[in-house]
Structure formats: C-alpha cells, structure tokens
C-alpha cells in the first residue's frame, strides 16, 4: 500500500475541488438562464473532456504548459520550476479534465430554479448579489455538492492525463491510479489489489453519498 500516493491523490483532489468550486460556479452561473449565440459552443467546450481521450487532452496540455509554451516559460522564469511534471501542472490538468463533472450538475441545479422565484426575490428588494447568496445558492446546493463530490472522485481516479502531464514522480505526481499501474507492471499483485479495493470502496461511498444527499434535499424542498 503506497500511502504517499494515496495522500497525494487526496491532496490533488482536494485542491482540484477547491478550484472547481469557484470556476464551476462562475461558469455554471453565467451560462444559466441565458440565451446567447454561441452558448452551445461554450457548453460543448466545457463538456469536451468527457469524450476526449485522456491522451489527446494530455498531449495538448503538455503543449500549452510545456517549457516552450508562453505559460510554461513564464512560470519557469518566475518560480524556477517547470509546470509540467509538477503538482501545479497536474492541478491545472485536473481542473480542466474534471470541469464537466463540476459544471454540469451545477448548471442543471441553477436552471431548475424557476425564473419566478428569482424575480420574486428582486421584487422583495433583494439585490442580484443577495439573491445569489440567499436564494440561488441554497436552492442549487444539491447540484453544487454533487458537482464537487463527482469531481473529487473523478480526480481520485484519473490516470491518462496524469501520466501524460505529470509522469510518475513519487510525492509529486505519482497518484494512486499511477501507483496501481506501477504495481501491476512490476507484478506486485497484492499491493495493487489492496489499493484498487480502497479506491473502489472510496468511490462507491462518494457516489452513494451524493445520491442520498440529493434525495434528502429534494424531499425537503419540494415535498
């Protein structure tokens, strides 16, 4: 059992979820309730990581985060470290890769709030900002929590993109899924088996937690 890999995975997933909470809310909230030309295009871009092979995504990330890219060289001259094959690069890759898992439930949750309820809030004197905090956010809570839980679980299990962008550096980029792959490669079946089981149980718990929470929430709100 590679506990370093496990804790690295937890750290990466936690950081990804933290970033995605902000990014996902921004994207979902600005897409919800609006009709504008090109909306489908933006939705398609957000959903793209769902269907794109991780290797393709990883390749382009390497291209854009690499030492020869403007972003990569800027970060390297600032910090003295490369973006690729580092935790930072891995975080950027994970955020992009898990974006649809965060945005889609959040977007759905926002769009399921009736327009009349938001208008009632404005007519009760609530500013757009207080309407967001006091009405939209609580009503979209279930979607936001599912989005976070799903992107957490998805990041815990991601493999292809990590391998492409992060490589296999212990305590820096070697996550659980990479470690499992490693163990299988070196015929350490017992270790691979125990790590797989932990990941399986963990994912199952997260997903069933999401379902339970959604059911309880909608029961309370909609009767």
């Amino acid at each position: 059992m590679d506990w370093t890999a496990f804790s690295l995975s937890l750290k990466l997933s936690g950081a990804t979820v933290a970033v995605l909470l902000i990014v996902g809310l921004l994207v979902a909230r600005s897409l919800a309730w609006r009709r504008f030309p090109g909306k489908s295009m933006i939705e398609a871009i957000v959903a793209l990581p769902l269907v794109l092979p991780p290797t393709v995504l990883g390749y382009y990330l390497l291209l854009f985060l690499g030492r020869r890219s403007p972003l990569g060289s800027a970060v390297e001259s600032l910090t003295g470290e490369t973006l690729v094959f580092s935790f930072g690069g891995l975080l950027i890759a994970s955020v992009i890769y898990s974006l649809p898992f965060a945005v889609q439930p959040m977007l759905q949750a926002f769009e399921s709030i009736p327009q009349g309820v938001r208008e009632a809030a404005w007519c009760s004197g609530l500013s757009k900002w207080s309407t967001f905090w006091r009405i939209e956010l609580p009503l979209a809570r279930a979607g936001i929590v599912s989005g976070m839980a799903l992107s957490f679980a998805h990041t815990m299990g991601e493999f292809g993109v990590v391998l492409m962008v992060g490589g296999n550096i212990p305590d820096e980029t070697r996550t659980v899924s990479i470690a499992i792959f490693d163990k299988v490669q070196s015929f350490e079946e017992a270790s691979a088996g125990s790590m797989s089981l932990v990941l399986l149980v963990f994912s199952l718990c997260v997903v069933s937690l999401v379902y339970t929470m959604n059911r309880n929430f909608s029961a309370r709100v909609r009767g």
């Binding site: 009349g116 309820v117 208008e119």
Partner: peptide, 20 residues
C-alpha cells in the same frame, strides 16, 4: 429603476415562494 428600488409588491400567479 430596477425591481429592487421600485417598491412594488407582486403576488405571482404560482406564488413563487422560496421553497427552502
């Protein structure tokens, strides 16, 4: 003026109460 500053009390057709 935005709805917030108009001081109009509106009762919606489906009431639009805040469910939470």
């Amino acid at each position: 003026l935005p709805p917030q500053t108009r001081k109009a009390g509106l009762v919606f057709q489906d009431f639009a109460l805040f469910p939470h």
